[in-house]
Design a protein around this nucleic acid. Sequence first.
DNA 1: GGGGTCATGTAATAGGTTACATGATTCT
DNA 2: AGAATCATGTAACCTATTACATGACCCC
Lengths: 205, 205
Amino acid sequence: MASKRKVRNLLALAVMSYLTHRPMHPYELSRTLRTNGDDRSIKFNHGSLYMVVGQLERAGFVAAQETSREGQRPERTVYALTDDGRREHAEWMRELVSEPQHEYPGFVAALSLIGALAPADVVELLQTRLARLQGQRAEIRALVDETVGNGVHPLFLVEEEYRIAQIDGEIGFVGDFLERIADPNADWRRTWDAMRAQTGEDPSQ
Amino acid sequence: MASKRKVRNLLALAVMSYLTHRPMHPYELSRTLRTNGDDRSIKFNHGSLYMVVGQLERAGFVAAQETSREGQRPERTVYALTDDGRREHAEWMRELVSEPQHEYPGFVAALSLIGALAPADVVELLQTRLARLQGQRAEIRALVDETVGNGVHPLFLVEEEYRIAQIDGEIGFVGDFLERIADPNADWRRTWDAMRAQTGEDPSQ
DNA sequence: GGGGTCATGTAATAGGTTACATGATTCT
DNA sequence: AGAATCATGTAACCTATTACATGACCCC
């Protein structure tokens, strides 16, 4: 099922999404994505956009429609979604919503190698993380509240609610982990120290 | 702070981590990563490993130490961590543990564009997701329990506990979201339908 | 009317994945 | 002894990011 999509970059999904409504030229897409704040959810930079549009064109999901000129600005190529593109877009969306994907966040990588650090250090680092997580949570909450205050329905910010749920899960995990290793006599802490003694690590780093 | 690391690929972090203990040649690294199950936490494929080792060498974090030959097998270059490499490794680990990074999971992208799908459909898709999340959770739990049953201390699987915490957060979120849109007369559901009527979407897809 | 910034895109470079290649070992 | 798989690496090909380029508009 995890089909071999011809274009995998999620920016392409956003492009197809906007082209569902009406044809646009790349720069307009770029603007729209930025002002809609989609760049909080999808990695985006100016250069990649043109690349992605090119890929979509080669894949037959969008087609150049006309090249218009307005005032004395350079010519712009307007792209429209093809029928194939419409199908691809819907299918991809459905897949993303229904099938959890295996991903590789940096924190997971670090956790899997955490034995390399001294537990006393890790306690400090995790406390820092905890504070920052709480800060991020507050920022997101503020952003959502402000936007909703301006009359936007929370449905349009549901991805931010998801982020908050993830942050809360992480805060819980970090708290638990800290409890297990903060006390120098705790089981986990002793195991950790013992392992590092074995492999001959410098206990101070 | 969020320094401009010369090598950003997380696979490089794992490589440096293993080279902390002793010098190895790339193929041995490859084997070790696989058998230790690090490929669950760090994206890994055979080809990238050689690339990453090359990058690390150019950056001065590892150095070719000797080329050994065993039996009639091809020659292998053994790499050792340099002092710079040791510093970089420790610093990077500390950064990853203490600073939450902004990342771009596929589900967030889909959520931010979710308005393109019909709410009735989304209900179904989310139910499917929920079931799969529960399946994944059970798999991870089983893996952890089995490994711990074999005498491995749970400290060495802490990244899997983190995954479970994230999945639990996601399950909670999806459940809430479903409640908000499952009932055709719920506030969210009506907003959603109204928006789609405005932009003239086909209600059946 | 000159200095910023907006609008619009292309080109150069670096990063990552897949495919290919080849001798050694093991299995039947 | 031929087939399968392990061991080991290189090369070709995409993908993605950064840097460069250039005319228009706007402010003082």
